[in-house]
């Protein structure tokens, strides 16, 4: 079946709503407007305003209400327009959703799913473009998902809704229009493991490219081009940033002996730093070269196209890092 990331997300929402009466979608403009990124377009007509619930611009209020509704036995899916707006709900996400189970000694789990767009690349400037999913991945009590493929866009939501604890789903804004083939029977997928999407081959230099979310298409592109240069690249799609599947990373690095981490977040104190640290902790003696990182420059994401492009990871920067890692120049 030909579909898009957006349609796969919508199919996942529709499926969840049909399968479980406790599931409802709540957020700004999810109903009449059809979703600010049109993910929920048409669902209001199908499920009505109680279950496709438009909210005022009250991120803390409606995220907190989602947490309360989850405590009360519902299975809310709360949509926040962008990760930048989620900062207005940080109190509820971190002080309540992530802590209630522990503070209550195991009495109150919070089965909420919070979806939001993340990332840059659309010239939206610094207040609509940041990539803070790695930051959320710092928080015990949360599970952090970053679907990058059609299969995961279609399949992660239902699994997330089965999770007894809070799950945050980060949808990179550049992915919504990505089109491709998806099995007609595509459904729930695991949300625990990273995926080795491509295994580098050949007798030449090898390395592991590790990424997630919006930078996956660029990394796959880079892997193709590297193959043309005789460099065989494994590509790992992390899929889940917390818990981080170190094993898949370490298994690959043990074979390739080199790693490049590509992350649209900033470098300092980032998920890329965590991955590099885990490689050092768990695969240090397998390494033939220092771990390379390709991250966004440490500036608020700028508006102008040339500036924004310069700030973000690119195929060229990934290629250059890969060549450095294998000592092939750059």
């Amino acid at each position: 079946m030909k579909t898009t990331y957006r349609e796969a997300m919508r199919a996942a929402l529709r499926d969840a709503m049909q399968r479980d009466d406790r599931v409802f979608l709540m957020g700004e403009d999810v109903g009449r407007y059809g979703g600010s990124f049109a993910v929920s377009l048409g669902l209001l007509e199908e499920f009505g305003p109680d279950r496709i619930r438009d909210t005022p611009l009250s991120e803390s209020g409606f995220v907190g209400a989602g947490i309360g509704a989850a405590l009360g036995g519902m299975r809310p899916v709360v949509e926040i327009m962008t990760v930048n707006f989620s900062l207005l709900a940080l109190d509820q996400i971190i002080n309540n959703a992530a802590t209630l189970l522990h503070m209550s000694g195991g009495q109150f789990n919070v089965p909420i799913v919070i979806r939001m767009t993340t990332g840059a690349g659309r010239q939206l400037g610094a207040q609509h473009s940041h990539s803070l999913e790695g930051w959320y991945a710092h928080i015990p009590g949360l599970r952090i998902l970053a679907p990058a493929t059609l299969r995961d866009a279609r399949g992660m939501l239902w699994t997330a809704l089965q999770d007894p604890d809070p799950v945050l789903i980060f949808e990179h804004g550049s992915l919504y229009n990505v089109a491709g083939e998806l099995d007609d029977g595509a459904g729930a997928v695991d949300i625990d493991k990273a995926a080795l999407l491509r295994q580098g081959d050949g007798d030449g230099d090898r390395l592991t490219l590790i990424t997630y979310g919006g930078t996956l298409p660029m990394v796959l592109d880079a892997a193709d081009q590297l193959a043309g240069e005789g460099i065989g690249a494994d590509v790992i799609d992390l899929r889940t940033l917390r818990p981080l599947d170190s094993h898949t990373i370490v298994d690959s690095v043990a074979r390739t002996h080199r790693a490049v981490v590509v992350d649209e977040g900033w470098r300092s104190g980032s998920i890329s730093a965590e991955i590099a640290a885990r490689i050092c902790e768990q695969a240090f003696f397998d390494l033939d070269a220092p771990v390379e990182r390709v991250c966004s420059l440490e500036v608020p994401v700028p508006y102008a196209k040339h500036l924004e492009e310069a700030a973000l990871p690119s195929v060229e920067r990934v290629m250059a890092a890969a060549r450095r890692a294998v000592g092939a120049g750059g």
Binding site: D50, G64, A65, G68, G72
Partner: peptide
């Protein structure tokens, strides 16, 4: 008894959500 909330006003949205669940159910 849902806490025991030590962020001032942080419990109010929870109460709204608990009531929303009751209403929807």
């Amino acid at each position: 008894f849902y806490g025991g909330n030590a962020i001032v006003a942080g419990g109010l949205p929870l109460a709204v959500g608990l009531a929303l669940a009751d209403r929807m159910a």
